[in-house]
């Protein structure tokens, strides 16, 4: 039922970096970690809506550029003691291409 969208090549995303996928319901940040894992999260920090895609990526985490909240990319949750959660989206990498599924986002919409 989920529809996988091909969005870019893995190499289009810098390692320890992110790209932004524009979406009418709010942008989605696609992160690539040092070990080449890829994560997709709403590009909004649960704190004050800062664009997470612009943060510094380390380990499987990103630090929000506005107030330095740290968000766990795997869980979408703020690292304690901060509290909050950002919506995750399924993402997978095959043959060097990155696919994103917006099934849950559209189901929620």
């Amino acid at each position: 039922m989920s529809e996988w969208l091909e969005i870019c090549r893995l190499d289009d995303i810098p390692r320890l970096g992110a790209r932004v996928v524009e979406h009418p319901d709010g942008n989605i940040a696609i992160f690539r970690t040092k070990d080449d894992r890829v994560f997709a999260l709403d590009d909004r920090c649960p704190h004050k809506g800062g664009p997470l895609s612009q943060g510094i990526v380390f380990d499987h985490k990103v630090a929000c550029p506005l107030h330095d909240w740290v968000i766990d990319l795997e869980k979408g949750e703020a690292v304690p003691p901060d509290e909050g959660c950002t919506h995750r989206h399924p993402v997978r990498v095959e043959n060097g291409l990155v696919y994103l599924s917006l099934a849950r986002a559209s189901a929620a919409a």
Binding site: D12, I13, V21, E22, I30
Partner: peptide, 13 residues
């Protein structure tokens, strides 16, 4: 790449 967002061609809108 830092300044260009990825635009979805299919599936949305």
């Amino acid at each position: 790449h830092e300044f260009e967002p990825i635009r979805l061609i299919q599936g949305v809108a």
